[in-house]
């Protein structure tokens, strides 16, 4: 897996390529945790595979950022990965975060 990071004033963009799975999920998690921008966008355009560990980590990070009044945005999801994420209810959970009351920064 390869991660490229673009930092702007209010937004950090992480471009993820390759395969995200149990063996390297901590690498992407650490990169997300390192960002301080209010909006962190994870671009999955060049991701070929993501297993359940990757999906679980992204949701955990989305929750964490939501509690800090920040946003984790996951974009350009390849169709095969989107299909798997839809089955597990990933987007439904993200929707609940959008509607969740913000508790203030940590």
């Amino acid at each position: 897996m390869e991660i490229r990071v673009n930092n702007e004033k209010e937004k950090a963009t992480l471009l993820v390529a390759g395969e995200l799975d149990y063996s390297n999920v901590a690498q992407l998690q650490q990169e997300i945790e390192r960002q301080e921008a209010p909006l962190v966008e994870v671009v999955l355009k060049d991701l070929q595979f993501m297993d359940s560990s990757g999906a679980g980590m992204l949701l955990s990070q989305a929750r964490l950022l939501s509690r800090q009044n920040r946003v984790l945005k996951i974009t350009h999801i390849p169709e095969n990965i989107r299909h798997d994420l839809e089955i597990i209810g990933f987007f439904r959970v993200l929707e609940t975060l959008k509607g969740a009351p913000q508790s203030g920064g940590e």
Partner: peptide, 28 residues
């Protein structure tokens, strides 16, 4: 289903995939 692929049912020449969807356990 709670976040799991639906079963596939083969009946004669028909193939039916029940439209059962749900959020995986532990998410909510």
């Amino acid at each position: 289903s709670a976040g799991h692929p639906s079963p596939v049912i083969f009946s004669g020449r028909n193939i039916h995939v029940p439209r059962v969807r749900g959020v995986a356990l532990g998410f909510l």
